Amino acid sequence: MVNEKLFRPESIAVIGASNNTMKPGGKIVKNLTEHSFGGSLYVVNPKEQEIQGIPAFSDVKELPEVDLAILAIPAPFCLPAVEVLASRKNTKAFIIISAGFGETNEEGKQLEEKIVEVIDRHNGCLIGPNCIGVMTPHHASVFTTPVPPLTPHGCDFISGSGATAVFIMESGIPKGLQFANVFSVGNSAQTGVEDILAYLDVKYEPGVSSRVKLLYIENIDNPDKLLFHATSLIRKGCKIA
Rank of each mutant, 00 (worst) to 15 (best):
I97F: 02
S209D: 10
N19T: 09
M1Q: 11
P74F: 03
G128Y: 08
I196V: 10
F143R: 04
I15L: 10
L63T: 02
K30W: 10
R8P: 00
A69D: 01
S184Q: 11
H153W: 02
K236L: 08
G124T: 03
C125K: 01
S18E: 02
L41N: 02
S18G: 06
P149M: 10
N181I: 00
R121Y: 12
N187M: 09
F37E: 02
E10V: 00
F37P: 05
H138D: 10
F183R: 11
D221E: 11
F167T: 07
L85M: 00
K236T: 00
E205V: 14
E65L: 00
A163Q: 04
K175N: 03
D201N: 11
P223G: 07
T145R: 00
K5T: 13
G160P: 04
C78E: 05
S210Y: 04
M135Q: 15
S171R: 11
G124P: 09
N123M: 12
A99R: 06
N19D: 13
V212D: 08
A163G: 09
L227A: 14
P24F: 05
F157I: 05
P146A: 12
I15E: 10
A230S: 12
L200Y: 11
T104K: 14
K92C: 06
G26Y: 02
L85F: 01
P146D: 12
H122L: 08
K175E: 14
G25S: 04
P148Q: 12
T136G: 05
A13D: 03
L79C: 04
T144Y: 05
T164R: 05
L214T: 06
L68E: 02
I168E: 11
I220Q: 10
Y199K: 05
V2F: 07
